[in-house]
């Protein structure tokens, strides 16, 4: 049943994304692309783009979007509630325990060890967005037709601008989009 599958996928995403922000991305990718094939890699890249442009946590954005795409508005409700459910249980317990003991050394120690793993998994998820953006089929190859030179230029310029001036990321993304739109209008 589709609702059960949405529930199982998004409960896992909610329960195992530690560290906020992009930490949910590798989990969303694993469930939504690799396990259930609900989105293509290109759709996933669009989803991350849309999530960046809109307010709200990426996990909630992904749940609402994927739920809708797969099973309509009810699917979206199921997916969104599922992704928030582990938080509701875990944080409530932690808040109660914390009121009593006021110490979280173990929790913080675990989190410190988890952070490097999360970094490398976000990196891996970033690569699966970057490679198909720059190379046809996501396989590194500089042969004509395989290498999308415009996308590579936008990427390098965007990275440079981000590192050098630390602007609002949304502006950088819009800049890349506008550049491609202008080029395609000229080429048409």
């Amino acid at each position: 049943m589709i609702y059960l599958r949405l529930f199982l996928a998004f409960v896992q995403i909610g329960a195992f994304s530690f560290g906020g922000g992009y930490a949910a991305m590798p989990l969303i990718q694993a469930q939504v692309i690799d396990t259930y094939h609900w989105l293509s890699a290109a759709d996933f890249a669009d989803l991350v783009t849309i999530a960046e442009m809109t307010p709200g946590p990426i996990a909630i954005n992904a749940a609402s979007f994927v739920g809708n795409q797969v099973a309509g508005i009810l699917g979206a409700v199921v997916a969104t509630v599922s992704v928030a459910l582990p938080s509701c249980i875990f944080v409530t317990i932690l808040a109660i325990v914390y009121q009593k003991y006021r110490k979280m050394t173990l929790m913080q120690g675990v989190l410190a060890t988890l952070r490097p793993a999360v970094v490398s998994m976000i990196f891996a998820a970033g690569l699966t967005i970057l490679l198909p953006t720059i190379f046809r089929d996501g396989v590194i190859s500089f042969a004509a037709g395989d290498f999308k030179i415009r996308s590579a230029i936008y990427f390098i310029v965007a990275l440079f601008v981000l590192r050098k001036w630390k602007p609002n990321p949304i502006l950088v993304m819009l800049g890349c989009g506008a550049a491609e739109l202008i080029v395609q209008l000229i080429l048409r």
């Binding site: 783009t49 990196f123 890349c176 989009g177």
Partner: peptide
């Protein structure tokens, strides 16, 4: 379609830039 295609490069740059900062932190 053109906008999203271009923006994908931007998203990849934003993510890898964040990853770089986190990597340096570790």
């Amino acid at each position: 379609q053109a906008l999203l295609t271009g923006m994908r490069s931007g998203v990849a740059a934003v993510i890898l830039s964040v990853v770089w900062d986190m990597f340096i932190g570790v």
